[in-house]
């Protein structure tokens, strides 16, 4: 079942000026319900432009955006309701914080939904817990937090609206590896718990391979590929053409295969490679190698 469908969508910035920029050209694809979809592409390929169409922040110049099969622009006055259903965490969301306390900031979205106070409080706590924010932090000023914490506050602010679709634009950008893993794991966990549909934008193939069920590849505003993660990564040559590399570990496996070590095809994560190696080593000398 597809949750969001794009039909022949195009988007142009600065139409009719000398700075005209075709950010999206005739893009059509759909996003599967209850799955984590990764949107990959180089910087400037139109990923951010695309995700802002999902929740009606911008309106496509041509084509339609369907949520559960209905055009989101059918009733332009109701577009706010779409924004509560499709929660968008923008790129570098830590710069949108403004309230005096973390609690109040996370509550901004739910408040705009017109929820009762106790419901808001419950949601704030739940969202903070989901993104791993300590309860003691709730009464701090968001401006006193570290960069990673600020970002988690911003993500919690969207999760607190309990959107049916959670879209995150480069949630891991600018974080250290541990912070990245943490945020992506939490997003995955949120998906599992809530059953929501999740879209993650990234240009890191490694991250995408580990956390996404489906992959959509974008290059220069056009759709290049879409499919299950392993299907997409199987087309390493096509990805290389648009300047994206398959994960490092997949290349290592390919090199090992070239040297006659029978590694499985379709390995995209270090864990999978370790399991495969363990199996191979176990088969040769009966002694389990330690992972990593």
């Amino acid at each position: 079942m597809s949750k969001i469908t794009l039909e022949n969508v195009s988007y142009v910035y600065g139409e009719g000026t000398p700075f005209e920029m075709h950010a999206l050209r005739d893009v059509s694809f759909s996003i599967r319900e209850n799955a984590v979809t990764g949107l990959i592409g180089h910087t400037g390929s139109g990923k951010s432009t695309l995700v802002q169409l999902f929740n009606g922040l911008t309106r496509p110049m041509a084509g339609r955006v369907l949520l559960d099969g209905a055009d989101i622009w059918e009733k332009p006055k109701q577009i706010k309701q779409i924004r509560f259903r499709v929660g968008l965490v923008m790129q570098y969301p830590e710069y949108q914080l403004f309230e005096e306390t973390v609690r109040a900031d996370i509550a901004f979205g739910p408040k705009n939904m017109g929820l009762p106070a106790d419901e808001i409080e419950a949601r704030v706590r739940e969202a903070a817990e989901l993104v791993g924010l300590d309860e003691a932090l709730l009464d701090h000023s968001p401006f006193d937090l570290s960069g990673g914490e600020k970002r988690r506050v911003a993500i919690a602010g969207i999760i607190a609206m309990r959107p049916e679709v959670l879209v995150l634009d480069e949630p891991a950008a600018g974080l250290d590896p541990r912070g990245r893993d943490r945020i992506l794991t939490q997003v995955r966990e949120y998906q599992r718990r809530s059953g929501a549909t999740v879209v993650i934008v990234s240009h890191s193939m490694e991250d995408m391979a580990r956390f996404c069920d489906d992959i959509v590849v974008l290059a220069r505003g056009e759709l290049v590929m879409q499919g299950k993660t392993d299907e997409v990564f199987a087309h390493a040559d096509r990805l290389a053409q648009v300047g994206l590399n398959i994960p490092e570990i997949s290349r290592v496996c390919a090199m090992l295969r070239a040297r006659g070590i029978p590694m499985d095809e379709g390995i995209f994560t270090v864990d999978a490679a370790a399991r495969c190696l363990e199996r191979l080593l176990g088969a040769t000398d009966g002694e389990g190698a330690s992972t990593r």
Partner: peptide, 8 residues
């Protein structure tokens, strides 16, 4: 845009 996404 970010605040609109939160229903502002």
């Amino acid at each position: 845009a970010a605040q609109k996404a939160r229903g502002a």
